[in-house]
């Protein structure tokens, strides 16, 4: 019973493999995702707590956890918490994403 634990709780799990030490420089969009959390978790706003972010990341399921990049997991969780909190609705977000996609396509 006590061996049941989340995919993220991975200390000591087998199959880790060699450590790939090649890194990448963070892209601007990734830094912005990081900035969003810093601003939203700031006590002056307290709209997304770090533990809410983590809970959201832990609940995306093992395959998504492995497939998404680090900040893809973050933006997924941040946005889900904001919808739960009623900061915006999923409909608003969907419309905004479609609007931006059209805007960016015509700009290219």
């Amino acid at each position: 019973m006590d061996d049941h634990h989340g995919h993220h709780d991975m200390g000591g799990e087998p199959g880790g493999g060699p450590i790939d030490q090649t890194g990448h420089d963070y892209a601007l969009w990734e830094k912005r995702v990081d900035a969003l959390l810093m601003l939203l978790s700031n006590p002056s706003r307290a709209l997304v707590r770090v533990d809410e972010l983590r809970r959201g990341i832990e609940s995306i399921g093992p395959s998504a956890y492995e497939e998404l990049t680090y900040y893809e997991r973050w933006i997924t969780s941040i946005s889900n918490v904001l919808i739960e909190r009623g900061v915006y609705t999923s409909d608003e977000l969907g419309r905004k994403m479609a609007e931006i996609e059209t805007r960016e396509e015509s700009a290219r």
């Binding site: 019973m1 006590d2 061996d3 049941h4 989340g6 709780d9 200390g11 983590r54 809970r55 832990e58």
Partner: peptide, 12 residues
């Protein structure tokens, strides 16, 4: 010894 339920910071 207790199952990990919800979000917690005690590693298994």
């Amino acid at each position: 010894r207790a199952p990990s339920i919800g979000h917690l910071r005690t590693p298994h």
